[in-house]
């Protein structure tokens, strides 16, 4: 009884800011922009955007994997560091998150553009200018840069909680350092991996600002398309339909990640 009572504020929050908007999105997605009549037209148009969906998911996935590969050793190092250093390093990881996301992306633009810091420097050495911006690699770079902390933090949490005696037990039974990692540390950090991938993938797949600033002119991601439906094209109904489909695709992807991790453990993260 008491538990249910304590959950009330959360329930009200969920209803007001999750369920109601979701219902609105669903309603918009299935109604016509002009007449407001029920229609499947918005959903039917989705086919034209298939390649953009695929590209968005693909780039987000690549970013998530790069974040994992880069973030895991960092998280591992922080988790094994002495307590004082640990706090300091964590602060360094969190610090960029305190600066506006837009500002950080703009900073990358001024670093990467043809007349930017890097190309100017290379120019002095007689190289370039290199095409560092307006391509998919730049988008992935922006995503990795922005979302890396969301990978490191959950990984750090599981690695830090891991009982060092388990590592001793593995060594005792004959594991060398590599086997300790593959047989104990890695499988036991699966929940952190799933949660990290989810936390990077979900915002990355629906991002619009990064691709707009760092991507090429034809590099619109699905987030950009959705944004433009609400702003430029003023077709919120089609935007809602796109959002709905994207949401379903994200759920499918998360479901797959949990399945791959082979455990019900991953479920707690969603």
């Amino acid at each position: 009884m008491r538990n249910r009572f304590l959950a009330t504020p959360y329930l009200i929050w969920m209803i007001l800011f999750v369920l109601v908007p979701l219902a609105v999105v669903v309603y918009f997605a299935f109604t016509d922009v002009n007449s407001g009549a029920l229609t499947l037209h918005n959903i039917a148009r989705m086919g034209n955007y298939l390649s953009i969906f695929i590209k968005s998911i693909w780039l987000a996935l690549v970013s998530a994997v790069i974040c994992l590969v880069v973030g895991y050793p960092v998280a591992y190092f922080i988790a094994k560091a002495p307590a004082g250093l640990q706090r300091f390093l964590l602060m360094l990881i969190i610090l960029p998150m305190c600066i506006s996301f837009l500002l950080r992306t703009m900073a990358w633009v001024s670093l990467l553009e043809d007349t930017g810091v890097i190309n100017n420097f290379l120019g002095m050495l007689g190289i370039g200018p290199l095409p560092l911006i307006r391509n998919n690699a730049a988008i992935v770079l922006g995503m990795v840069y922005n979302y890396l902390p969301y990978m490191i933090l959950p990984l750090y949490t599981v690695l830090e909680k891991m009982d060092p005696r388990l590592i001793e037990a593995a060594q005792d039974l004959g594991c060398d350092d590599m086997q300790v990692f593959t047989k104990v540390t890695l499988p036991m950090s699966a929940p952190g991996i799933v949660s990290g991938i989810t936390m990077v993938f979900v915002p990355a797949v629906s991002t619009f600002y990064i691709s707009k600033k760092l991507g090429g002119t034809d590099a619109a991601l699905i987030g950009d398309v959705i944004e433009s439906q609400f702003k430029a094209a003023y077709n919120p109904n089609f935007g809602a339909a796109l959002s709905l489909v994207l949401m379903i695709l994200i759920f499918i992807c998360i479901g797959l990640t949990n399945r791959v991790s082979g455990d019900e453990k991953g479920a707690m993260l969603v």
Binding site: R165, L166, E168, A169, D172, G174, D176, V184, P187, M188
Partner: peptide, 20 residues
Amino acid sequence: VPPHKRKINTVFQKYALFPH
């Protein structure tokens, strides 16, 4: 000599079973 190269096994006081 590191533990994994010793012909010794241990029953740990706190068990240290692999939870996964």
